[in-house]
Design a protein around this nucleic acid. Structure first.
Length: 529
RNA sequence: GGGUCUAUGGCGCAGCCAGGUAGCGCACCGGACUUUUAAUCCGGUUGUCGAGGGUUCGAAUCCCUCUAGACCCGCCA
């Protein structure tokens, strides 16, 4: 591979940006400002996958800028979507009565935002802020209220028959051969979906509707019987997803949008609508797989396995999230909090490559790794490398030291010669790794089988540890006690590890006992005698 | 019914999207060190890269077919 074949920073993001540019040039469009878009769901608690959509779109924006173009990320909250079901863990808020209402018209159950939808969007925006992503925030509710899509809605409704047929042809959904792809919000009961559009009055730009019972999932939602007209430029109502993106792409002049494979069909239809009905070439796309929960491993029962950015950041750095999202886009991936330690180390490794401390022979791979490092730092990499401490090591130490953790773990790291000075960065790492060890290394109190001989030996050890003067050699003491009581030293050590650490192995036990404190260990052991 | 992804030592995975020496962790084996456990350190073994075909000087990587599994869509957004 030669130098000139490498585009930008050599990552998939650069390749995508360059494809986008070539396409724009071929289309002959103005490239003064290349907008990229990310949709934010607002009906449920945002998963890390929703964050990924925006983070990756931001990556493309960075790549475009790096190639010399101006770009901007629009984060668009779909807060006119109706609430379809009550999310896990939110049963107690009495949201039943708000089913089918736009999430921006439902009060915030937590009382801290102007609506339910804004509360949810805000969790995502907060996540973006925390990892350093910059964006222009827009809301569906404002977009429709201000009539920003009215021309596109008009064109779409005038062509509804053609569109309905095409939807049926492309994805096999026949619904829009019968109904208009526009859902008014009922002026009487505020519900979406119950109000069924029956007719479009093109001259007045109004949609006639009737509010009646409808099925959402397996439940029936009551309509109020209201018959009304909705002005597409003023009144609340929204396009069906199958055509809405296209309208938005044209109105906002969007040139790139990534999408998850779950909405592949919608994108296919919207691309056609944009190209053929609205006569505005659809944006460049990339499809990504969904993150899946780890099969069989229940990581966080209480939280229902939802991985939010906020939860992730209790254990991992913002960069670990960015690395996860930028290292790859293809491929199905099972994701869990137990990926954090690996990502934390991988970041350090990338940093070493970037600063030349690790040699990489393959030139293309070197460029790619360096590029990835730069993207993880949002193309603003540090001037010098940070101090590296292995995350897993800190987790192990945090497991041992629960009291005065920061101080004692730091001291151990200094003793081991892993670090030269205590640094705030390391403190943060101890905090993260400490949270991780608290959450995932719950040691079930192992049932330790002790016979009388073992108990006697244990008792002798307790007495030996529980004296005031310093012990010369705890390691040897343990060994001697085992031997003189007819226990295999191997078995005796195993018993001690089981009691102290809940595992059958561990660090060299003499110095380890000193670290924890002799008296403390004596106390723990005495509970088994 | 339509679609997407995945398949790489015993186990878990990376590498594939821009073809160029098949890698990592765990496990396993050997050695060093410690009077003796464990830990640690050093070294080592383990592969028809799911099957078959094609492109190429060269394929885990690109293309086609097949097999198995997972997921998504076929309510709605």
């Amino acid at each position: 591979m030669t130098e000139q074949e490498i585009i930008g920073k050599g990552t998939w993001i650069d390749k995508l940006a360059s494809e986008l540019l070539e396409r724009e040039k071929a289309l002959g469009r103005n490239t003064d400002l290349l907008r990229v878009e990310s949709g934010l769901g607002a009906s449920g608690i945002p998963h890390i996958g929703s964050l990924g959509d925006a983070v990756r779109a931001y990556g493309v924006k960075l790549a475009l800028e790096n190639l010399g173009y101006k770009s901007e990320l629009i984060a668009y909250s779909d807060d006119l979507d109706g609430l379809r079901k009550i999310p896990e863990g939110m049963q107690e808020f009495g949201l039943e009565e708000h089913i089918a209402k736009p999430v921006s018209l439902i009060p915030d159950p937590y009382g801290c935002h102007d609506s339910y939808g804004m509360h949810m969007s805000n969790i995502l925006l907060d996540g973006l802020d925390k990892v350093g992503i910059k964006y222009e925030f827009r809301r569906a509710v404002d977009t429709y209220k201000q009539g920003l899509l009215k021309d596109q809605i008009h064109t779409i409704l005038q062509n509804s028959v053609k569109i309905g047929d095409k939807i049926s042809e492309l994805v096999g959904q026949e619904k829009y051969q019968k109904y208009l792809p526009y859902f008014p919000v009922c002026a009487n009961c505020n519900r979406l979906y119950t109000a069924e559009s029956t007719e479009y009055i093109a001259d007045e730009k109004k949609v006639k509707y009737t509010c009646h019972d409808t099925e959402i999932g397996s439940k029936t939602v009551k309509g109020c019987g209201h018959i009304g007209e909705a002005d597409i430029g003023k009144d609340l109502g929204k396009l069906a997803w199958k055509v809405e993106f296209a309208a938005r792409w044209k109105a906002f002049d969007i040139r790139f949008e990534a999408y998850g494979k779950d909405i592949m069909d919608s994108v296919k239809v919207n691309d056609w609508v944009a190209d053929e009905i609205l006569e505005c070439p659809h944006p460049h796309h990339v499809k990504y797989e969904m993150f899946l929960d780890k099969g069989g491993k229940k990581i966080s029962k209480s939280l229902g396995n939802v991985i939010t950015a906020q939860k992730w950041l209790e254990f991992g750095s913002p960069k670990s999230i960015l690395l996860l999202l930028y290292k790859r886009i293809t491929g199905a991936r099972e994701l869990g909090f137990d990926d954090i330690p690996g990502l934390m180390s991988e970041y350090n490794e990338l940093e070493d490559i970037y600063f030349g401390r690790i040699k990489v022979d393959n030139q293309a791979k070197l460029v790619k790794s360096k590029g990835l490092y730069e993207y993880v730092n949002l193309l603003n990499p540090p001037k010098q490398s940070s101090t590296h401490v292995n995350y897993r090591l800190v987790v192990e130490l945090a497991k041992i030291f629960k009291e005065n953790r920061n101080e004692r773990v730091m001291k151990k790291l200094l003793d081991y010669g892993v670090i030269k000075n205590p640094e705030p960065e390391i403190e943060k790492l101890i905090e993260l790794a400490g949270n991780y060890s608290n959450e995932f290394n719950e040691q079930e109190k192992t049932q330790v089988d002790l016979d009388d001989i073992a108990k006697k030996a244990l008792k002798l050890l307790v007495e030996a540890l529980d004296v005031d003067e310093e012990l010369e050699d705890i390691q040897n003491t343990i060994y001697q006690i085992a031997k003189s009581n007819g226990i295999e030293p191997k078995d005796f050590f195993k018993i001690l590890y089981q009691i102290i650490l809940g595992t059958s192995r561990g660090p060299k036990i003499g110095p380890f006992i000193s670290d924890i404190g002799r008296k403390q260990v004596a106390k723990t052991l005495s509970e088994y005698v």
